[in-house]
Amino acid sequence: MNFKYLCFLLLAIIPDEAVFGQEKNGWVKRFIQKSVSDTTSPGKPSFRIYPTLAYSPETSFEFGFSSLFLFQSKNDTLNRLSEIQAFTFITLEAQYGIWLDNAIYGDKDNWFVLGRTRFQRFPLLYYGIGPETPGTEPALIDANYLLLRQRVLRKVVRNFFIGPEIDYQQLYNTKFNQPEDHDVYELPLGSNGGKNLGLGAAVVYDNRHNVLNVRKGLFSEFSFLTYRKALASDHDFYGFNLDVRSSHPTNTRNVLAWQVYGNFFSGDVPFNQLALMGGEMIMRGFYSGRYRDKNMIAAQAEHRWLPFKFSKRFGGTVFASAAVVAPKVNEFSWKHIRPSGGVGLRYLLFPKKDIFLRLDVGFTKEGPGIYLFTGEAF
Protein backbone atom coordinates (compact mmCIF):
# COMPACT_ATOMS: atom_id res chain seq x y z
CA MET A 1 0.00 0.00 0.00
CA ASN A 2 1.36 3.41 -0.93
CA PHE A 3 -0.03 6.53 0.74
CA LYS A 4 0.92 10.03 -0.43
CA TYR A 5 -0.33 13.46 0.60
CA LEU A 6 0.52 16.93 -0.69
CA CYS A 7 0.79 19.94 1.63
CA PHE A 8 0.60 22.37 -1.28
CA LEU A 9 -2.87 21.25 -2.32
CA LEU A 10 -4.21 21.63 1.21
CA LEU A 11 -2.71 25.10 1.59
CA ALA A 12 -4.14 26.11 -1.75
CA ILE A 13 -7.74 25.33 -0.83
CA ILE A 14 -7.81 26.39 2.85
CA PRO A 15 -8.87 30.04 3.32
CA ASP A 16 -5.95 32.39 3.86
CA GLU A 17 -7.02 33.36 7.39
CA ALA A 18 -7.17 29.71 8.47
CA VAL A 19 -3.56 29.19 7.49
CA PHE A 20 -1.95 32.54 8.11
CA GLY A 21 -4.18 34.27 10.67
CA GLN A 22 -3.71 38.01 10.45
CA GLU A 23 -0.24 37.74 8.85
CA LYS A 24 -1.33 38.98 5.46
CA ASN A 25 2.19 39.48 4.15
CA GLY A 26 3.83 36.29 5.42
CA TRP A 27 6.41 34.73 3.10
CA VAL A 28 4.63 31.38 3.20
CA LYS A 29 1.41 32.98 2.00
CA ARG A 30 3.20 34.82 -0.78
CA PHE A 31 4.91 31.61 -1.84
CA ILE A 32 1.64 29.67 -1.99
CA GLN A 33 -0.23 32.46 -3.78
CA LYS A 34 2.55 32.74 -6.36
CA SER A 35 2.42 28.97 -6.87
CA VAL A 36 -1.32 28.89 -7.56
CA SER A 37 -1.50 32.11 -9.59
CA ASP A 38 -0.98 31.93 -13.33
CA THR A 39 0.15 35.42 -14.29
CA THR A 40 2.22 34.61 -17.37
CA SER A 41 1.08 35.77 -20.77
CA PRO A 42 0.11 33.20 -23.42
CA GLY A 43 3.23 31.81 -25.06
CA LYS A 44 5.52 32.93 -22.23
CA PRO A 45 7.36 30.31 -20.14
CA SER A 46 5.88 29.37 -16.75
CA PHE A 47 7.69 27.90 -13.76
CA ARG A 48 6.25 26.64 -10.48
CA ILE A 49 7.80 24.95 -7.46
CA TYR A 50 5.89 23.62 -4.46
CA PRO A 51 6.58 21.45 -1.41
CA THR A 52 5.40 17.86 -1.00
CA LEU A 53 4.81 15.67 2.03
CA ALA A 54 4.25 11.93 1.74
CA TYR A 55 4.06 8.78 3.82
CA SER A 56 4.42 5.12 2.94
CA PRO A 57 5.21 2.04 5.03
CA GLU A 58 8.47 1.55 3.12
CA THR A 59 9.79 5.07 3.63
CA SER A 60 8.10 6.57 6.71
CA PHE A 61 7.60 10.32 6.13
CA GLU A 62 8.89 11.77 2.86
CA PHE A 63 9.64 15.45 2.27
CA GLY A 64 10.38 17.03 -1.07
CA PHE A 65 9.76 19.60 -3.77
CA SER A 66 8.10 19.35 -7.15
CA SER A 67 8.67 21.80 -9.97
CA LEU A 68 7.22 22.29 -13.42
CA PHE A 69 8.59 24.34 -16.31
CA LEU A 70 6.29 24.98 -19.28
CA PHE A 71 7.22 26.73 -22.51
CA GLN A 72 6.57 26.94 -26.24
CA SER A 73 9.40 27.15 -28.73
CA LYS A 74 10.16 30.76 -29.66
CA ASN A 75 7.26 31.76 -27.36
CA ASP A 76 4.95 31.00 -30.27
CA THR A 77 1.48 29.87 -29.15
CA LEU A 78 1.10 27.94 -32.40
CA ASN A 79 3.87 25.61 -31.23
CA ARG A 80 3.09 22.74 -28.90
CA LEU A 81 3.44 23.12 -25.15
CA SER A 82 6.70 21.60 -23.88
CA GLU A 83 7.17 20.51 -20.29
CA ILE A 84 10.00 19.62 -17.94
CA GLN A 85 9.00 18.19 -14.56
CA ALA A 86 11.32 17.64 -11.61
CA PHE A 87 10.72 15.99 -8.26
CA THR A 88 13.19 15.56 -5.42
CA PHE A 89 12.63 13.92 -2.04
CA ILE A 90 14.25 12.65 1.16
CA THR A 91 12.72 10.38 3.81
CA LEU A 92 13.18 9.73 7.51
CA GLU A 93 14.74 6.39 6.52
CA ALA A 94 17.62 8.25 4.78
CA GLN A 95 16.25 7.48 1.32
CA TYR A 96 16.41 10.11 -1.39
CA GLY A 97 15.86 10.63 -5.07
CA ILE A 98 15.58 12.97 -8.03
CA TRP A 99 13.12 12.43 -10.91
CA LEU A 100 13.11 14.39 -14.16
CA ASP A 101 10.64 13.99 -17.05
CA ASN A 102 10.74 15.90 -20.33
CA ALA A 103 8.60 16.30 -23.44
CA ILE A 104 10.19 19.04 -25.55
CA TYR A 105 8.92 20.13 -28.97
CA GLY A 106 11.02 22.24 -31.31
CA ASP A 107 9.79 25.05 -33.53
CA LYS A 108 7.07 23.74 -35.89
CA ASP A 109 7.59 20.29 -34.31
CA ASN A 110 10.76 19.69 -36.30
CA TRP A 111 12.21 17.91 -33.25
CA PHE A 112 10.64 16.03 -30.35
CA VAL A 113 12.77 15.04 -27.33
CA LEU A 114 10.94 12.64 -25.01
CA GLY A 115 12.45 11.01 -21.95
CA ARG A 116 12.94 10.54 -18.25
CA THR A 117 15.76 10.46 -15.72
CA ARG A 118 15.69 8.77 -12.31
CA PHE A 119 18.23 8.62 -9.54
CA GLN A 120 17.18 7.24 -6.19
CA ARG A 121 18.15 5.28 -3.15
CA PHE A 122 14.82 3.71 -2.45
CA PRO A 123 13.50 0.32 -1.31
CA LEU A 124 12.02 -1.97 -3.96
CA LEU A 125 9.46 -4.51 -2.83
CA TYR A 126 9.96 -7.81 -4.64
CA TYR A 127 7.09 -10.30 -4.83
CA GLY A 128 8.71 -12.68 -7.30
CA ILE A 129 8.33 -13.17 -11.04
CA GLY A 130 5.20 -14.39 -12.82
CA PRO A 131 1.43 -13.89 -12.89
CA GLU A 132 0.68 -15.76 -9.63
CA THR A 133 3.16 -14.40 -7.10
CA PRO A 134 2.04 -14.26 -3.43
CA GLY A 135 0.98 -10.90 -2.04
CA THR A 136 2.40 -11.37 1.46
CA GLU A 137 5.91 -11.10 2.85
CA PRO A 138 7.75 -9.49 -0.07
CA ALA A 139 11.51 -9.23 -0.11
CA LEU A 140 12.99 -5.76 0.29
CA ILE A 141 15.71 -4.74 -2.13
CA ASP A 142 17.70 -1.74 -0.99
CA ALA A 143 19.82 -0.24 -3.75
CA ASN A 144 20.88 2.83 -5.65
CA TYR A 145 19.09 3.09 -8.96
CA LEU A 146 19.92 5.17 -12.03
CA LEU A 147 17.79 5.41 -15.16
CA LEU A 148 18.48 7.54 -18.24
CA ARG A 149 16.08 7.14 -21.15
CA GLN A 150 15.70 9.52 -24.07
CA ARG A 151 14.25 9.53 -27.58
CA VAL A 152 15.48 12.20 -29.98
CA LEU A 153 12.86 12.20 -32.71
CA ARG A 154 12.77 14.00 -36.04
CA LYS A 155 9.52 14.97 -37.78
CA VAL A 156 9.07 13.04 -41.03
CA VAL A 157 5.64 14.33 -41.93
CA ARG A 158 3.09 16.19 -39.86
CA ASN A 159 2.61 14.52 -36.42
CA PHE A 160 4.87 11.61 -37.37
CA PHE A 161 8.32 11.27 -35.78
CA ILE A 162 11.15 8.76 -35.92
CA GLY A 163 14.55 8.62 -34.27
CA PRO A 164 17.05 6.85 -32.04
CA GLU A 165 16.37 5.81 -28.47
CA ILE A 166 18.82 5.14 -25.65
CA ASP A 167 18.13 3.49 -22.30
CA TYR A 168 20.71 3.13 -19.54
CA GLN A 169 19.80 1.50 -16.23
CA GLN A 170 22.08 0.71 -13.32
CA LEU A 171 21.40 -0.93 -9.96
CA TYR A 172 24.26 -0.81 -7.44
CA ASN A 173 25.04 -1.03 -3.71
CA THR A 174 22.35 -3.69 -3.72
CA LYS A 175 21.11 -5.61 -0.68
CA PHE A 176 18.48 -8.33 -1.17
CA ASN A 177 16.67 -8.70 2.16
CA GLN A 178 14.53 -11.82 2.47
CA PRO A 179 11.43 -11.73 4.71
CA GLU A 180 12.26 -12.01 8.40
CA ASP A 181 13.28 -15.41 9.80
CA HIS A 182 13.11 -17.32 6.52
CA ASP A 183 14.05 -17.30 2.85
CA VAL A 184 11.14 -17.22 0.44
CA TYR A 185 12.55 -16.08 -2.89
CA GLU A 186 15.13 -17.51 -5.20
CA LEU A 187 17.55 -14.71 -6.00
CA PRO A 188 16.51 -13.30 -9.40
CA LEU A 189 18.83 -12.35 -12.23
CA GLY A 190 20.32 -8.96 -11.40
CA SER A 191 19.78 -9.19 -7.62
CA ASN A 192 23.45 -8.32 -7.08
CA GLY A 193 23.09 -5.20 -9.19
CA GLY A 194 24.33 -4.45 -12.65
CA LYS A 195 24.19 -2.06 -15.57
CA ASN A 196 22.58 -2.35 -18.98
CA LEU A 197 22.74 -0.05 -21.98
CA GLY A 198 20.02 -0.35 -24.59
CA LEU A 199 20.13 1.16 -28.07
CA GLY A 200 17.28 1.22 -30.52
CA ALA A 201 14.73 3.33 -32.32
CA ALA A 202 11.23 4.70 -31.80
CA VAL A 203 8.42 5.55 -34.17
CA VAL A 204 5.86 8.01 -32.81
CA TYR A 205 2.60 9.51 -34.05
CA ASP A 206 1.56 12.47 -31.89
CA ASN A 207 -1.06 15.11 -32.64
CA ARG A 208 -1.52 16.30 -29.03
CA HIS A 209 -1.06 19.99 -28.30
CA ASN A 210 -0.90 19.82 -24.49
CA VAL A 211 0.99 16.77 -23.22
CA LEU A 212 -0.04 17.23 -19.58
CA ASN A 213 -3.78 17.58 -20.24
CA VAL A 214 -4.90 16.15 -23.55
CA ARG A 215 -8.38 17.35 -24.47
CA LYS A 216 -8.24 15.77 -27.91
CA GLY A 217 -5.54 13.78 -29.65
CA LEU A 218 -3.70 10.55 -30.30
CA PHE A 219 -0.26 9.44 -29.16
CA SER A 220 1.12 6.16 -30.51
CA GLU A 221 4.64 4.84 -29.93
CA PHE A 222 6.35 1.67 -31.05
CA SER A 223 9.96 1.19 -30.02
CA PHE A 224 12.69 -1.45 -30.06
CA LEU A 225 15.69 -1.67 -27.75
CA THR A 226 18.53 -4.16 -27.67
CA TYR A 227 20.92 -4.66 -24.76
CA ARG A 228 24.19 -6.46 -25.50
CA LYS A 229 27.31 -7.28 -23.52
CA ALA A 230 29.22 -5.91 -26.48
CA LEU A 231 27.47 -2.58 -25.80
CA ALA A 232 28.53 -2.31 -22.12
CA SER A 233 25.60 -4.33 -20.74
CA ASP A 234 25.82 -7.09 -18.16
CA HIS A 235 23.11 -9.13 -19.92
CA ASP A 236 21.94 -9.91 -23.45
CA PHE A 237 18.26 -9.22 -24.11
CA TYR A 238 15.96 -7.14 -26.28
CA GLY A 239 12.44 -5.79 -26.13
CA PHE A 240 9.56 -4.14 -27.95
CA ASN A 241 7.36 -1.47 -26.35
CA LEU A 242 3.90 -0.31 -27.40
CA ASP A 243 2.02 2.72 -26.08
CA VAL A 244 -1.23 3.99 -27.64
CA ARG A 245 -3.24 6.79 -25.99
CA SER A 246 -6.35 8.52 -27.30
CA SER A 247 -8.46 11.34 -25.86
CA HIS A 248 -11.94 12.38 -26.99
CA PRO A 249 -13.87 15.43 -25.75
CA THR A 250 -17.47 14.67 -24.79
CA ASN A 251 -18.20 18.38 -24.33
CA THR A 252 -16.23 21.56 -23.59
CA ARG A 253 -15.27 20.33 -20.08
CA ASN A 254 -15.32 16.55 -20.21
CA VAL A 255 -12.87 14.10 -21.78
CA LEU A 256 -12.98 10.34 -22.33
CA ALA A 257 -9.49 8.84 -22.66
CA TRP A 258 -8.10 5.33 -23.13
CA GLN A 259 -4.68 3.69 -23.35
CA VAL A 260 -3.19 0.35 -24.42
CA TYR A 261 0.32 -0.36 -23.16
CA GLY A 262 2.62 -3.34 -23.69
CA ASN A 263 6.17 -4.57 -23.00
CA PHE A 264 7.56 -7.67 -24.71
CA PHE A 265 11.06 -8.90 -23.78
CA SER A 266 13.24 -11.86 -24.73
CA GLY A 267 16.60 -13.03 -23.42
CA ASP A 268 18.27 -12.74 -20.02
CA VAL A 269 16.25 -9.88 -18.56
CA PRO A 270 17.28 -8.68 -15.06
CA PHE A 271 14.43 -8.48 -12.55
CA ASN A 272 14.40 -4.68 -12.41
CA GLN A 273 13.95 -4.35 -16.19
CA LEU A 274 11.14 -6.84 -16.60
CA ALA A 275 7.68 -5.57 -17.54
CA LEU A 276 6.28 -4.11 -14.32
CA MET A 277 2.58 -3.94 -13.48
CA GLY A 278 1.48 -1.03 -11.31
CA GLY A 279 2.59 2.51 -10.56
CA GLU A 280 1.40 6.06 -11.09
CA MET A 281 0.64 5.81 -14.83
CA ILE A 282 -1.24 2.57 -15.46
CA MET A 283 -2.77 -0.02 -13.09
CA ARG A 284 -2.96 2.60 -10.35
CA GLY A 285 -3.53 0.90 -7.00
CA PHE A 286 -0.89 -1.78 -7.58
CA TYR A 287 2.61 -1.30 -6.26
CA SER A 288 4.96 -0.85 -9.23
CA GLY A 289 6.32 -4.35 -9.86
CA ARG A 290 3.70 -6.15 -7.80
CA TYR A 291 3.51 -8.46 -10.80
CA ARG A 292 6.44 -8.65 -13.19
CA ASP A 293 7.51 -10.87 -16.06
CA LYS A 294 9.01 -10.68 -19.55
CA ASN A 295 5.69 -9.71 -21.14
CA MET A 296 2.80 -7.49 -20.13
CA ILE A 297 -0.26 -6.05 -21.81
CA ALA A 298 -2.39 -3.44 -20.04
CA ALA A 299 -5.35 -1.21 -20.88
CA GLN A 300 -7.19 1.57 -19.11
CA ALA A 301 -10.02 4.05 -19.64
CA GLU A 302 -10.74 7.27 -17.80
CA HIS A 303 -13.47 9.91 -17.78
CA ARG A 304 -12.38 13.41 -16.74
CA TRP A 305 -14.35 16.46 -15.61
CA LEU A 306 -11.92 19.35 -16.17
CA PRO A 307 -13.14 21.20 -14.23
CA PHE A 308 -16.48 20.41 -12.63
CA LYS A 309 -19.38 22.44 -13.97
CA PHE A 310 -19.85 24.15 -10.60
CA SER A 311 -16.17 25.06 -10.09
CA LYS A 312 -13.49 27.08 -11.87
CA ARG A 313 -10.52 25.11 -10.54
CA PHE A 314 -11.64 21.73 -9.20
CA GLY A 315 -12.32 18.69 -11.32
CA GLY A 316 -12.34 14.93 -11.01
CA THR A 317 -11.96 11.58 -12.75
CA VAL A 318 -13.07 7.97 -12.62
CA PHE A 319 -10.87 5.26 -14.15
CA ALA A 320 -10.61 1.52 -14.63
CA SER A 321 -7.82 -0.70 -15.91
CA ALA A 322 -6.75 -4.30 -16.39
CA ALA A 323 -3.40 -5.98 -17.08
CA VAL A 324 -1.73 -9.36 -17.35
CA VAL A 325 1.88 -10.58 -17.28
CA ALA A 326 3.37 -13.78 -18.68
CA PRO A 327 6.80 -15.32 -19.43
CA LYS A 328 5.86 -15.71 -23.11
CA VAL A 329 3.33 -13.97 -25.33
CA ASN A 330 1.50 -17.22 -26.07
CA GLU A 331 1.11 -17.83 -22.32
CA PHE A 332 -1.12 -14.85 -21.56
CA SER A 333 -4.15 -16.21 -19.69
CA TRP A 334 -7.59 -14.76 -18.94
CA LYS A 335 -7.40 -16.10 -15.37
CA HIS A 336 -4.31 -13.97 -14.68
CA ILE A 337 -5.88 -10.65 -15.67
CA ARG A 338 -5.76 -8.21 -12.72
CA PRO A 339 -8.31 -5.37 -12.52
CA SER A 340 -8.04 -2.01 -10.79
CA GLY A 341 -10.08 1.17 -10.70
CA GLY A 342 -10.43 4.41 -8.84
CA VAL A 343 -11.32 8.06 -8.60
CA GLY A 344 -9.35 11.28 -8.70
CA LEU A 345 -9.47 14.93 -7.71
CA ARG A 346 -8.06 17.68 -9.93
CA TYR A 347 -6.92 21.22 -9.15
CA LEU A 348 -6.30 23.70 -11.98
CA LEU A 349 -2.73 24.80 -11.31
CA PHE A 350 -2.09 26.74 -14.56
CA PRO A 351 -5.43 28.13 -15.82
CA LYS A 352 -3.92 29.82 -18.89
CA LYS A 353 -2.14 26.62 -19.93
CA ASP A 354 -4.86 24.18 -18.81
CA ILE A 355 -2.62 22.17 -16.47
CA PHE A 356 -4.10 20.30 -13.49
CA LEU A 357 -2.59 18.88 -10.32
CA ARG A 358 -3.93 15.35 -9.84
CA LEU A 359 -4.69 13.30 -6.76
CA ASP A 360 -5.69 9.72 -7.68
CA VAL A 361 -6.84 6.87 -5.46
CA GLY A 362 -6.60 3.46 -7.12
CA PHE A 363 -8.30 0.40 -5.64
CA THR A 364 -7.35 -3.27 -5.99
CA LYS A 365 -8.14 -6.46 -4.09
CA GLU A 366 -4.88 -5.91 -2.22
CA GLY A 367 -5.70 -2.38 -1.07
CA PRO A 368 -5.54 1.23 -2.29
CA GLY A 369 -2.76 3.35 -3.69
CA ILE A 370 -2.68 7.15 -3.62
CA TYR A 371 -0.78 9.23 -6.19
CA LEU A 372 -0.05 12.94 -6.53
CA PHE A 373 1.45 14.39 -9.70
CA THR A 374 1.25 17.33 -12.08
CA GLY A 375 -0.61 16.45 -15.26
CA GLU A 376 -2.79 13.52 -16.19
CA ALA A 377 -1.63 9.90 -15.92
CA PHE A 378 -1.75 9.47 -19.71
Rank of each mutant, 00 (worst) to 15 (best):
G239Y: 00
Y126K: 02
P45M: 05
F373I: 09
T226D: 12
L349Q: 03
P327E: 00
V211N: 09
I337P: 00
G315N: 06
I297H: 03
S66D: 12
G128I: 00
A326G: 08
D109A: 01
L189C: 03
T133R: 03
S191Y: 15
P134W: 00
F89P: 02
R338T: 06
K29L: 03
S288Q: 15
F271Q: 00
L345I: 15
K74A: 11
K24F: 10
G362V: 02
D76M: 06
L10P: 03
F363D: 00
V28A: 14
D181Q: 13
G316L: 07
K155Y: 00
F378W: 11
G190A: 03
P164C: 07
Y291D: 00
L274E: 00
Q85H: 13
L6P: 04
K155F: 05
H235A: 04
S321G: 15
F31Y: 14
F356C: 09
V260R: 01
T374L: 06
R80V: 06
R228H: 10
I104S: 01
K328A: 15
K29M: 07
G97E: 01
E221Y: 01
N251C: 13
P51W: 05
Y371K: 03
R30L: 09
R292S: 04
E62N: 07
K335V: 09
Q259V: 09
F264K: 07
I337F: 05
Y261C: 05
